[in-house]
Write a protein that binds this DNA or RNA. Structure first.
Ligand SMILES: [Mn+2]
Ligand SMILES: [Mn+2]
Ligand SMILES: [Mn+2]
Ligand SMILES: [Mn+2]
Lengths: 219, 219
DNA sequence: GACGAGACTTTGACTAATCAAAACCAAATC
DNA sequence: GATTTGGTTTTGATTAGTCAAAGTCTCGTC
């Protein structure tokens, strides 16, 4: 059976490859993402290759094999189901469950995971709005997006603010950006790295991408 | 923080020392109990000594320090709370939860453990009848005993049969030894290694110690 | 008191995962 | 075409945990 380390690498590669659309992931991203030295990633990738979990072209990048994708999806499922349990059942805050799940995902057996899934009512989304893969690796669309990801001119509702610092919360309150408020991205400018946002009937204002990323909405 | 391995060793030493009353545990028991080579245990014990978790007299045995007992009790608490959760909440069978808990006990944070404890209603006993230590390492008496452990002439009720094999279950049914039945140990003979048992008003019969150990009762 | 058996310890070797630093490569710049 | 530079790979070392097998003690028996 794969070690926790192998599981973490494969999960990270899957997530990165989903973000980049081409499916090829660079060594640097992996090392960065897992907070290990570059050489550590290189050598671990060779192990994964021996296990037929990835294909690896030296100095080009890594792609998951079918076997790797399967394992990755399974880990994503574990991770997100555990997060859901921690929030729904034990009442932890959604901002703190990621770290917990990072450990528990490796310790939970298939059987227990199944029971947990059943107990939770086979949820489709985790507390962060990320879809929970089914046992056969199926995937819904992300339900919650941040303001950078969401489409222009589409009305949507603020769900959460990722940055819980007082400064940010105060700024948000001043602008009327509180959960429940209807907003709409009126314009997006990739060059100036900003998003123009309409709140209710007030006049639209502009938000930098850093801030836009911290505001989660559902449509 | 202690590794999972360290936690397993300390927990095992605690359990063994509780069984033997003198609190001193031999190297052989530890190696056997953890299913490692004798030399592995010796070298690991030296590590535990460096961490001030045990006192170690070469070729004599090991005792826990206060720090070690604390860690051991904490692990026992984790283990048994997790078992309780798996049975009570997820409906697993009490015969299969030990292995699951063996992994999960290391992956669960203090915070999550606390919430779990609360969620379960601060249970005092795990599904095997073993007491769950409180956060400050307090301990109730074992609630469920096997027929070898329970006192003579004390009426008690059959709770569980540890051996689930068809042969054993058939034998038990023939003798009326099913959960719920009131029984009483009428006599115990350590030399012949047997227990005389009265079931209801039928005439008492004798059980070997192997079989007696498989029958759990509460009083 | 010597002997042997069984328990315990030591030794030497191995694996997984990691890092720091040196070596290397490829692509953009001069 | 030569050079620089930034990412990648290689190298050499380290740590935790493990085993097999060789060596050492201790204790009960003669
Ligand atoms: Mn993880
Ligand atoms: Mn999540
Ligand atoms: Mn364990
Ligand atoms: Mn138990």
């Amino acid at each position: 059976m794969p070690s926790a380390t192998v599981e973490n690498y494969v999960k990270k590669i899957l997530v990165l490859s989903l973000e980049t659309s081409e499916g090829q992931v660079g060594m640097g991203e992996i090392a960065k993402g897992l907070d290990v030295a570059a050489g550590t990633a290189t050598s671990m990738i060779k192990t994964l290759e021996r296990e037929k979990l990835v294909r690896y072209k030296s100095r080009q990048g890594v792609t998951l094999t079918a076997k790797g994708r399967k394992l990755g999806m399974d880990m994503l499922r574990r991770h997100r189901l555990v997060e859901t349990f921690l929030v729904e059942t034990l009442g932890l805050d959604w901002t703190e469950v990621h770290q917990e799940a990072e450990e528990l995902e490796h310790a939970i057996s298939d059987k227990v995971l199944d029971r947990l899934d059943e107990f939770l009512g086979r949820p489709e989304f985790d507390p962060h709005g990320d879809p929970i893969p089914t046992k056969d690796g199926k995937f819904a669309e992300r339900r919650i997006r941040n303001l950078l990801e969401c489409q222009s001119k589409q009305p949507c509702t603020i769900k959460l603010l990722t940055d819980q610092s007082t400064d940010f919360l105060n700024f948000a309150r001043r602008k009327g950006l509180v959960p429940g408020t209807a907003v709409e991205v009126t314009n997006r400018d990739l060059i100036s790295d900003a998003v123009e946002l309409g709140v209710g009937k007030g006049k639209p204002f502009t938000l930098g991408s850093k801030a836009a990323k911290k505001i989660l909405v559902s449509s």
